[in-house]
């Protein structure tokens, strides 16, 4: 989307967003005046420690929470409700346990009234994309943690969202699987470019994945401290000196520890 001056407008824009939970004495200030603009097809990582409000920010963009002040926009339109234009992958496994992999992935298109044959084709394509071909008929309890999150990514993608929102999707995986899933995330994103907002508390993960890294800081309320540009070529190498240096810089300049 371009305005008259020819400058590209941001895909997602957060303006002056604050969030309070509760009332009176129990009122908690979670987010403080966040301004953030995300470009189209950009992979932005929101990095912050626990209780910095990063998940809350993501849920506001998802439309699951309403901001107390400020507004979030997608393509210049205010976001007030959840919708299929934003695909979400949650931290915890949220697959429907009574549905197969296919059943889970095709649920979105089914709810939008896409005919069976078409949605099956669509779902198959994304099951393939996340590397789960052959597991269409498996139930979630038969899958490993990493595979469950692959299904989670497939069923977010299948709705053809403009934006992908990932909320610490690999937080519950073991280190090995986590590295592998990070690689996969980049591969999938490069195959099907989307605007991605990825929330994590892991600096290494942030540097590996992000075009930019927005660091939230402070324990309630969370504030946007700094945005880092990651000018490293992909695929990135965890042991590359430039990689390590950026990782070190972020560690030094923020309260985050490795």
């Amino acid at each position: 989307m371009e305005d008259k001056s020819g400058v590209k407008k941001p895909k997602i824009e957060c303006v002056n967003i604050s969030k309070f939970f509760g009332e009176g004495q129990e009122k908690i200030h979670v987010l403080d005046t966040i301004d953030l603009a995300v470009k189209e097809n950009e992979f932005i990582v929101v990095l912050g420690p626990g209780q910095s409000g990063k998940s809350t920010l993501l849920k506001i963009i998802a439309g699951l929470y309403k901001p107390s002040t400020g507004k979030a926009y997608l393509d210049g339109k205010e976001l007030t409700h959840p919708g299929p234009d934003r695909g979400i992958v949650f931290q915890r496994y949220t697959l429907f346990p009574w549905k197969t992999v296919m059943g889970n992935v095709e649920m979105g298109p089914k709810l939008r009234g896409v005919p069976r044959k078409e949605r099956r084709g669509l779902a198959s394509r994304y099951i393939d994309l996340v590397g789960l071909k052959g597991f269409e008929k498996a139930y979630p309890h038969q899958l490993s943690g990493g595979m469950k999150q692959r299904v989670g990514i497939a069923r977010a993608y299948v709705n053809n969202p403009k934006v992908m929102l990932l909320d610490e999707p690999f937080g519950q995986l073991d280190a090995q699987t986590r590295y592998f899933m990070e690689e996969e995330t980049v591969r999938i994103w490069e195959t099907e470019k989307r605007t991605v907002i990825f929330v994590t508390n892991n600096i290494e993960e942030a540097v590996y994945l992000g075009d930019r890294i927005a660091v939230l800081e402070g324990k309630m309320p969370g504030k946007l401290k700094k945005i880092y540009d990651v000018n490293l070529p992909r695929p990135r190498d965890y042991t590359d000196p430039a990689f390590l240096e950026l990782r070190h810089t972020i560690t030094e300049e923020t309260e985050l520890t490795l």
Partner: peptide, 10 residues
């Protein structure tokens, strides 16, 4: 969480 997920599907 299931309900939230379904809401994001619209």
């Amino acid at each position: 969480v299931y309900i939230r997920m379904a809401r994001t599907y619209g």
